[in-house]
Design a binder for these strands. Structure first.
Lengths: 195, 195, 195, 195
DNA sequence: GATGAATGAGTCTTCATTCAT
DNA sequence: AATGAATGAAGACTCATTCAT
């Protein structure tokens, strides 16, 4: 088997197992059994259990990061709201496509490795920071009411995480995604009260 | 030492360590060292590592559960919104008081034990269900606009989780809590757009 | 079993096995089997395979070091030659007593650990340095002919090592030791030629 | 590449690595990387790791063996002492030329393989025996004083080993070799005492 | 002849749990 | 009740060797 293919095959087996059992409950034995390879073969492709987990998480973080485009507020651009929705749809599509990786990310918990903990932390901080900036900008442009951008950014990130969690662990089908994104945006923009 | 006191002392040591290192990175050695007891003593009070973790999480789940009162819509009661805010403040106060337990709950990850995974899952499902019911009720009473209660319930739970996460891991002081709760409620009720 | 006893028992089993099979061919399994303990028990007493080997070698180096007394050339002291012989007898007695440790030391080879390699190296350098100093002093005192002290120090150390090797691996009995020491001293002092 | 050349190229790479890292710390990976060959290629030329090590050591043992000529005591021959010195110079020259092999031999330790251990052992025993015979002969010819030939043979072998060790690991230059050999011979013949 | 992906036996090490004192 | 020495199952990782291409 070609090296790249084998590597991908191992990655994909590991992905599924990590997603279902979590990092600690997953053993190298689980992975090599699922990938039908020998113990040593695993270590040709990955330096350690940590390393393969890292590779998987990196993949997803990279994809999410790339799915988010900075909102362009020049007049020539499409409506900021439209761009926001596009961003969310792109992210949603990544999370949906890579639902196992998303499970891993959403149920990731401290304690594997401090470098690793920090990487995840930094990633979420970066996302929070982007949301916060967007809110602050909206406030300056008087599109968004006065609020505490830090708290609201957390609300928005939390909403996305939790909804994703709900959907992925209840295996929603892709068709509903746009509806879901709309619902979240609507909620964030206008709240729940009847006007 | 009285049995209950010793048990509590072990619990409280374990709580702090679990909160800071996570379940897997915490060893029985860590706990008995911090509690200044012998290895055997630990097993007099708790059946296993799982058991003490379970006891800790149960504590918090119980407190949170008790902090949430079903909203009373009889005329004699206070405003539903006021009741909602009181609920959130009570929960916030529990989370704040038991910040170590909250850390444990917020960074809990799959893989300790399937019974355990399910317990956490059920707990959140129950919370989601309560929020969902409240929203549905609000819709019936025409206080709340037409929306998908499942999704919105996730948004609200996610908001609360993520904001709590933010606050606890950045050690906010208790004084701000009411402000934070207000901000979340305001966000959920009226959204972000300027009217 | 008392901790110290157990530790010593493990040490002594390991000593024999290391002496006979060498560091690499000795496995932890060999040691625990010989000591009749469980795998985990070994690690209560020693951090690693390296660590127990280190402890053993340290023991011997310490004993050898202590057996060597600096030669006192004040008039009040016994003859330097007598002191030299006493030193050699004391060292010989240590090597004989701890013949397994001596086997380990004499057949030690690079490659276990660079820190470790250096420790052995330093030890021998220190011994060489002491011999060299003694020779230089003898030259100054005009007891010893002009020679290259570095080379001669190596000859003397080499003689001692090789003779020890011969004796230990052919299990000589202790009674001959004084005769052997005398022979070496005689050799070093007057050489082989008939005058 | 011609078969012999490739074989030699592998041998020479292995030689250097074994010399610097020792047998156990040297992996097949180290060798094939240094020799720029594929893993399988190594096994075309050598049956195993042991086998290549064996080949290297054999080389040196053969050269040393050949450098030593039995001392001819017929009247027509040169002085026995001159012959002795020639022997030592020839051996020294081999050790110097093949300093990596010499490093390997000098730091060889038990545990690779019992056949192998025995081969080294036998080699040294053979050398010891030759020295011992020469001494005994010298005693019969009344050139050498009465002594214990076994012990003295060990002293001489040990001296040569240790001095070689010193020189090789401190990278002496070839010019000093004759001086060193003279020093050792002088030491062995006349000892250290001022007459 | 050459390659290098694959193998799997073998090692070290960890740690939750037990139990005699 | 308390102790802590002992346990051993289980896990991660290494590396000499093989073999299909």
């Amino acid at each position: 088997m070609i090296k790249t293919d084998r590597r991908n095959s191992i990655l994909s087996c590991a992905e599924e197992i990590f997603a279902n059992k979590g990092y600690f409950a997953t053993s190298i034995s689980d992975i090599i059994q699922s990938a039908s390879i020998a113990r040593g073969t695993f270590y040709i492709y990955f330096d350690s259990k940590k390393a393969i987990f890292d590779a998987l998480v990196d993949d997803l973080l990279y994809l999410i990061d790339n799915a988010i485009k900075r909102i362009d507020i020049s007049n020539s651009a499409t409506e900021p709201l439209e761009q926001l929705k596009d961003n969310m749809l792109r992210v949603a599509s990544v999370l949906y496509d890579k639902s196992n990786l998303t499970k891993i990310l959403l149920t990731y918990a401290k304690g594997i490795d401090s470098d690793f903990d920090q990487k995840i932390d930094s990633f979420y901080k970066m996302i929070l920071h982007q949301i916060e900036s967007a809110i602050s900008l909206g406030m300056e442009m008087e599109l968004i009411r006065i609020c505490n951008p830090k708290i609201i950014a957390s609300c928005i990130l939390g909403s996305i995480k939790e909804v994703s969690h709900s959907l992925i662990f209840n295996s929603y089908s892709i068709e509903h995604i746009e509806e879901v994104v709309d619902e979240i945006i609507q909620f964030a923009l206008t709240g729940l009260l009847i006007k």
